[in-house]
C-alpha cells in the first residue's frame, strides 16, 4: 500500500467514526436522557463529598482534587453503561456491525461519543466543585486544568468504551462494568489527582504537573493503540 492510500484509509476511518459519534450525539441531544441524568448525578456526587469532608465549617481544600476525579469517574460509569444500550434495546447491534465501516472506526466513534458526553459532565462538575469548595484559580492554571481533564477523559473514554463493548452480552453488565473498569483506570486517577492537586495548590510549583501530563499522554497513546487492536475481534456475532 502506498503512503497516499494509507492516509486515505486513515481519513476515511476518522470520517466514519465521526458519523457514528454524530448519530449517538444527535439521539442524545434529542432525548437528553443520559446527559441530564449523568450531569446531575456528577453534581450530586460533588455535593455528597463536600458534606462528607467537612472540617470545621467548610469542606477540606486538600480533598478537592480527589473529589473532582471521583465525581467524573462515577458519572462516567453511568454513561458508559449506556454506550451500546440503544442498539441493544432496539435490537440493532447486528445492523450496526453490518454497516460498511471498519471496526476501528466504529470503536473510535463510540469512544468519541463518550468523550464529548463526559466533557459536558465535567462542565457541570468543575464549576460545582469550585463553588462548594470555595476554590480559586488563575487563568493560566485553569487552562492547565482543562488540559489534564482532557487527557484523562480521552483515556477514560477509550478504556471505558472498550470494556463496555467487551461486556456487551453480559446479563449484569452494569455491575460488571464498574468492577472491571476501576482497576484499569487507576493510573489515570492517580496521575489526574496528582496533577490537579498541584494546580489547586496556588503556592506550589508545577514540576509534578508536567511529569503527570507527560505520563497521561503516554497512557492515552498506549491504550488507544492497544484498544484499537483489541477491539477488532471483540464484536463477532
Amino acid at each position: 500500500m502506498s503512503v497516499r492510500q494509507e492516509i486515505a484509509g486513515f481519513v476515511s476511518i476518522l470520517r466514519d467514526s465521526w458519523i457514528v459519534a454524530k448519530k449517538d450525539l444527535r439521539v442524545e441531544l434529542r432525548s437528553k436522557e443520559i446527559l441530564l441524568t449523568t450531569a446531575y448525578f456528577g453534581f450530586l456526587v460533588v455535593l455528597v463529598f463536600s458534606f462528607s469532608f467537612f472540617y470545621g465549617d467548610a469542606p477540606l481544600h486538600a480533598v478537592a482534587a480527589g473529589i473532582l476525579w471521583v465525581a467524573v469517574a462515577f458519572a462516567g460509569t453511568l454513561g458508559l453503561g449506556r454506550v451500546f444500550e440503544r442498539e441493544r434495546e432496539g435490537d440493532c447491534i447486528r445492523a450496526l456491525l453490518l454497516t460498511p465501516i471498519a471496526r476501528p472506526a466504529l470503536f473510535l466513534g463510540k469512544a468519541l461519543g463518550v468523550f464529548v458526553f463526559m466533557l459536558v459532565v465535567e462542565a457541570v462538575v468543575v464549576p460545582a466543585l469550585f463553588f462548594f469548595f470555595n476554590l480559586a484559580i488563575t487563568a493560566e492554571r485553569a487552562g492547565m486544568l482543562a488540559l489534564v481533564l482532557l487527557l484523562g477523559t480521552i483515556g477514560y473514554s477509550v478504556i471505558g468504551t472498550l470494556l463496555a463493548s467487551m461486556l456487551l452480552r453480559a446479563q449484569t453488565k452494569d455491575v460488571l462494568l464498574t468492577i472491571v473498569l476501576y482497576p484499569f483506570i487507576l493510573p489515570l486517577l492517580i496521575l489526574g489527582v496528582k496533577a490537579t492537586a498541584a494546580l489547586f495548590d496556588l503556592t506550589g510549583e508545577l514540576g509534578v504537573f508536567s511529569e503527570c501530563v507527560r505520563l497521561l499522554v503516554a497512557f492515552d497513546v498506549v491504550f488507544l493503540v492497544a484498544s484499537l487492536w483489541t477491539f477488532e475481534p471483540i464484536l463477532v456475532d
Partner: peptide, 13 residues
Amino acid sequence: IVRAYAGPSAKQI
C-alpha cells in the same frame, strides 16, 4: 470476570 461473561468471543477478549 470478563472471560466468564463475555460470550462467544471471550477468548479473544
